[in-house]
Design a protein around this nucleic acid. Structure first.
Lengths: 245, 245
DNA sequence: GAGTGGTCTAGACCACTGC
DNA sequence: CAGTGGTCTAGACCACTCG
């Protein structure tokens, strides 16, 4: 690994190049979610830089939730099956602040062709194969969230209602373990909407009552969109929490 | 500055102690928002540590939005009057993703005594003085947000409707410049609610139509709550955007 | 005790800003 | 040009984990 000469308008420090190489290895599956990656000194030798430079690269990757550092043990590939990550993408609490565990109840799962909007959101071509999942999330036995989920057909080919029913754990954990699709970040758009007939029935609220609409696009490595979903949240007893820095 | 001996269950690295000292200086008003703080080497001399240690302290403070680094120029105290910070606490966009500027239209501003909830949220005693502000936020001339804002009476003593009307810029900018109250972070709870009569009138929507309710507590240095507000957002043409890491 | 990440230092050099 | 933050290195030592 040679230092990129400076003198350039597109200057990229060494540690960012190392970061890129580590990302590449992660994307290529060299280390799987939940596993340890080599120690900093090993990586330093491998890339021919000092340990401090590797350190800075790993620091950034850890800050961006790709990696998880644990003093004395090593650095691990982030996993949605790690209990620590369970609430990373689900920001729902009771109104009083209590955090409950949820249960996913899959309703439907079918194959379709991408329409205009799904194609744009998933970065695929019109009429490319997609898979659509509908499910309800229950908290304390009560339905709170109705999700409609659009997935790239190529990546999630074998997904079925049975698979969804058997799986214990979060959907993202399933995507990661069974399909090698590791969601790294997501963008959400929130609005308030009125419940239509079917949503009202499934969430056991009155037709026309206000629901929180959460539209989300989830990305894997390299900003590849993998999932587009729309959730309707009943906020009678729950709320979506957010932290502003 | 001597290194804290280890052997302790409450081990705190040197750079965190330096971070605390810098925070203390910021809180004490040694440097004002928008100003430069001393260079890293100056701070290193002042605190009797190496430049690298100061660097790590400043890094964390910059990551938490207390400070803003600018290569070649120096490190600055964050300010809500800096254009860069205008959208830090207002996550509203057009549905198509465009970001518009907003105009604040103050409606009312009166003194009151803290009730049960306001007292708890603001960390003050029941019946302590508070100030309540109501205002509408307009985007492209249309009302989109109705805010009801509860402020600590001690800190915001002189606030009046005239002050609010004269001020050009964000409320947080006003709080910072005129009252020395610098909001550093905030916690929000989002729900969907039905518009009541007055909200419907002010936001020019139908009574009962769904609105996004955003309840926010804003904190200053040392996690001191300074403001509690509830916003009702009309999401017909706008949405609240969020990024999940 | 060996191995990991975490802290701290000192020094050299680079990139950016403004005079 | 001087001054700032940004990068990179090498080495010493500390805290944590586990066998």
């Amino acid at each position: 690994m040679r230092r990129m000469v400076s003198e350039s308008p597109t200057f990229s420090p060494l540690y960012r190049q190392i970061k890129g190489l580590i990302l590449q290895a992660l994307d290529g599956g060299e280390w799987r979610p939940g596993e340890v990656i080599p120690s900093e000194t090993e990586l330093a030798v491998r890339f021919g830089v000092s340990q401090g430079t590797v350190r800075k690269a790993v620091d950034e990757l850890a800050a961006e939730n790709y990696l998880l550092r644990r003093q004395g043990k090593g650095t691990f590939v982030s996993s949605h099956n790690d209990p620590r990550a369970f609430f990373r993408f689900l920001r729902l609490q009771r109104l009083n602040g209590d955090v409950e565990t949820s249960r996913s109840v899959p309703l439907e799962c079918w194959r379709a062709k991408a329409g205009q909007e799904a194609a744009r959101m998933l970065g695929i071509q019109l009429a490319d194969p997609i898979i659509i999942v509908r499910r309800v999330l229950e908290f304390a036995g009560k339905p709170v969230v109705l999700d409609e989920i659009y997935l790239r057909g190529d990546t999630f080919a074998g997904l079925s209602l049975d698979t969804l029913r058997e799986w214990q754990g979060s959907l993202y954990g399933l995507f990661e373990s069974r399909f090698g699709a590791r969601m790294v970040r997501a963008e959400e758009k929130l609005r308030a909407v009125a419940a239509d007939r079917t949503a009202a029935d499934l969430l056991k609220v009155q037709e026309g009552s206000p629901l929180l609409s959460v539209e989300r696009v989830s990305y894997s490595y390299g900003d590849r969109p993998m999932e587009w979903r729309r959730g309707l949240y009943s906020t009678a007893e729950h709320c979506y929490v957010n932290e502003l820095g």
